[in-house]
Simulated assay, not measured.
Amino acid sequence: MSLPRQLLAEALGTALLLAVVIGSGVMAERLSGGNVALALLANTMATVGGLYVLIEVFGPISGAHFNPAVSAVMAWRGELPAGALLPYVAVQLVGAMLGAWLVHAMFDMTLLQFSTKTRTGNGQWIAEGVASFGLLLVILRAPAGRASAMVAAYIGAAYWFTASTSFANPAAVFGRMFSDSFAGISPASAPGFVLAELAGAALAVLVNRWLSIPAAASLPS
């Protein structure tokens, strides 16, 4: 598959993913009558379904990363050419921003805006590290043909068991900065999330490598 087609798939997939995440958050907040738990449940269900479909649709073209941390890990493993990493990340970030703007257009919101929702503190950062660690470990260890369902299921679970509601994706953080809505994150909170996500992804690579060492090789000679 040519790089331009892969980049188009990554841009479209990331834009649609952010449209699903942010759009379902806007709709859920409007319809839940102030019930935050109900809004989060609706947001979760839409994200799980949308993520699964997007991975299935774009996976054969670009790998359906939609996530700079995933692309970086794949480049480190040699599964993505090193020269493609920066273009992948660039289109993921642009796609995430466009996805936020698309939601605003659909819901008659102000197109250009920044989130004012503060998400910070040790608990939030630890949660993002855990979310990204689990996501990358699932991707690296999922049996062939089952990654899309397993990734979607994990993200759905992590919406509820992590304090941060599992962004687990620097592109998602970037896109959500541009939406002052249920799923948003303030620009001031974004760096902490991104650093925690990258740390979690790096830890997942190390753990996966350790888990993959044959038992005989791990024993002293």
Rank of each mutant, 00 (worst) to 15 (best):
L38H: 09
L140H: 05
H65R: 11
A163P: 01
L18C: 03
S189E: 02
F182M: 01
W160C: 04
D180K: 02
T110C: 04
Q92A: 04
G33E: 08
N43R: 00
P60N: 10
R146Y: 12
A202H: 09
W210N: 11
A69F: 05
L8E: 01
A168S: 12
L136E: 11
A204N: 03
L3H: 06
F66S: 05
A11P: 00
A215P: 01
M97E: 10
M177F: 03
K117S: 12
A216C: 07
L7M: 08
Y159Q: 11
A171H: 00
Q6I: 02
I61L: 14
L3F: 06
F167T: 03
P191W: 05
G175P: 04
A183C: 10
W210E: 14
G95A: 09
A69V: 10
S62Y: 07
Y52D: 05
N35G: 08
L136W: 03
L111M: 13
I139K: 01
V138D: 06
A157C: 13
S189N: 08
G34V: 01
V36Q: 14
F114V: 11
S212D: 15
A69K: 02
L40D: 01
V20D: 06
G192N: 10
F58W: 10
V57A: 12
V207F: 06
F167E: 00
L41M: 13
A39D: 00
L18Y: 04
E10I: 01
F58D: 05
I22F: 01
R119K: 11
H65N: 13
A46F: 10
P81F: 00
I185F: 00
G192R: 07
S132R: 03
F107W: 13
S71M: 07
N43M: 04
L135D: 01
F133Y: 11
L31Q: 14
T165H: 15
R5G: 04
T110W: 08
N35Q: 11
G50M: 01
P170M: 08
L135H: 02
F182C: 00
P143F: 07
P87D: 03
I155T: 00
L40T: 12
G49D: 06
M97Q: 12
N43A: 15
L93K: 05
A64N: 09
G175V: 03
V70N: 01
I126H: 01
G83W: 02
A163Q: 13
T116M: 10
L40S: 09
G25S: 08
Y154N: 06
Q124C: 09
G33S: 10
G25W: 02
G184I: 00
Q113L: 05
A144S: 14
V103W: 03
S186H: 07
A72L: 15
A199C: 14
A64P: 06
G99E: 07
P191A: 08
G13C: 09
S221T: 13
N122Q: 13
L93T: 07
L111V: 13
K117D: 09
F193N: 10
V20L: 02
S2Q: 12
L18F: 07
G23A: 04
L17V: 04
N208A: 15
L85F: 12
L136C: 06
A144T: 15
V194R: 00
S186M: 03
I213S: 05
A204T: 08
W160L: 14
S166A: 15
V53F: 12
G145R: 08
L41I: 10
T14D: 11
D108R: 13
V57R: 06
V70T: 08
G99H: 03
E79Q: 15
N67Y: 08
M150W: 11
A215V: 13
S166I: 00
G49L: 06
